[in-house]
């Protein structure tokens, strides 16, 4: 598209808000009761975080990788691509994140990295619990339906936020290559929500930017100590 930079985000929006949220409703109906399994996976991640062993951290990376792979295929490729031609590129990015999680979180995971017990770690835990338990409640906002709930492992936004939380917690290291795709997704999602005039548009980008800033700050302190 020529002169694309002169278009506003709202000019580029391809679908109506009702179509967008209906997409989640149909997706949830199609895969019910997989949502229960996804919620259980989130709880297992919480337990693994408490365990903190090398094996637990590798298991977390595997779970996250499976979630990103699932989203690449079931959400982006199968669903979102039907209303947004850019979703095929999102699917590729999500599949790449899954591979990065497996490579950096399982194969190249250095041993003996303890869970971060600093401010960054606490923030990570808060963010993970928010992504797992609070984010789906946004579906109760006016004009939406609980059947449109976006769940960790099933929907991209809470999964991206949960992944950022895990990175903050230091349970998957080295983390830098894992940051760009979730952060970019949160920015894209925020822009989409803003274009649709959704009141919660600020949530994904703000969480992503805060998580990135804290991860960078934490890494600087860590490198300063060593």
């Amino acid at each position: 598209m020529s002169e694309w930079w002169t278009y506003s985000l709202r000019d580029l929006l391809l679908f109506s808000p009702s179509t967008y949220y209906r997409l989640f409703e149909l997706y949830n109906i199609e895969w019910w009761p997989l949502q229960i399994f996804a919620l259980a996976l989130g709880m297992i991640v919480l337990l693994l975080l408490r365990n903190g062993s090398d094996q637990a951290r590798k298991a977390i990376a595997v779970i996250l990788a499976l979630c990103w792979l699932w989203l690449a295929w079931a959400y982006h490729w199968q669903r979102y691509a039907s209303i947004n031609w850019a979703a095929s590129y999102y699917a590729a990015a999500f599949a790449l994140e899954a591979l990065l999680l497996l490579w950096l979180g399982v194969i190249r995971q250095p041993p003996g990295m303890a869970e971060a017990r600093n401010k960054s770690g606490r923030s990570g835990m808060v963010l993970f619990v928010f992504a797992l338990l609070a984010y789906p409640l946004l579906a109760l906002l006016p004009g939406r339906s609980w059947t449109q709930a976006e769940l960790f492992g099933m929907a991209p936004d809470p999964t991206a936020l949960a992944t950022l939380a895990i990175i903050l917690l230091g349970s998957v290291r080295p983390a830098w290559w894992l940051l760009p795709i979730p952060v970019m997704w949160c920015l894209i999602s925020g822009a989409t929500l803003w274009a649709m005039a959704s009141p919660d548009f600020w949530l994904p980008p703000l969480a992503a930017l805060l998580a990135s800033a804290m991860a960078i700050s934490s890494a600087r302190k860590f490198s300063g100590q060593t």
Binding site: L14, F15, S16, T19, L23, L26, R79, S82, I83
Partner: peptide, 12 residues
């Protein structure tokens, strides 16, 4: 534009 981009939603 936008109005008919309803994906696979049969009702829509």
């Amino acid at each position: 534009w936008i109005s008919f981009n309803v994906g696979n939603d049969k009702a829509a």
